[in-house]
């Protein structure tokens, strides 16, 4: 099961038959394992990592540090949920250190992000303060290097 998940994490387009061939596990079992993982949300989604800059579409990213006041009984979870429900929030993490929540936000312009912070995030009741860092360049995304793809520089024929 672990190997099936690892393979799919690297390449979501692998078919059950391909995974079966590579692992030696019968295809019917691979299918069953995948279906089960999809049902219990071990597999959340199949996505594509896209280099939007290459496509020519501007995309602005910001990492927002959020300091919050934890609430009785629910701790940070309730405020985290208030934030992660916004579609602008691509990733939301609770972190240790000088602030509490790290929120990764994308939008088409800096203006959009600024207004998201000013209008939506900062005014939330338990938010004590925010610091916004705009991303200047994305080098590596989800394990993939965006520029300068590493092609094996091999001769086509060696003995």
């Amino acid at each position: 099961m672990k190997e099936i998940l690892e393979l799919l994490e690297k390449d979501a387009r692998l078919t059950a038959e391909q995974i079966a061939t590579m692992t030696g596990v019968p295809a019917s079992e691979v299918k069953k394992a995948i279906t089960k993982a999809e049902r219990d949300r071990t597999i959340l989604k199949y996505k594509t990592v896209i280099n939007w800059e290459k496509f020519g579409q501007e995309q602005v990213w910001a990492l927002i540090e959020v300091r919050v006041q934890p609430q009785r009984d629910v701790g940070f979870d309730a405020i985290a949920e208030r934030i992660y429900r916004f579609p602008e929030a691509r990733s939301v993490y609770l972190v240790s250190g000088a602030y509490d929540l790290a929120v990764l936000v994308t939008a088409r312009t800096m203006q959009e992000i600024a207004s998201f912070v000013a209008q939506k995030l900062a005014p939330l009741e338990s938010v004590l303060g925010t610091v916004t860092h705009f991303l200047l360049k994305r080098y590596k995304e989800d394990g993939e290097i965006l520029d300068g793809e590493e092609k094996a520089r091999r001769l086509p024929l060696t003995l």
Partner: peptide, 28 residues
Amino acid sequence: PSGIRRFFDLVSSMEDVVSLGVGEPDFV
């Protein structure tokens, strides 16, 4: 001389060749 030289020359002028002719890892 190794007889495969001519295959090497043959493929170096071609695009779109899929090679199973290497003798080393594809990993860096």
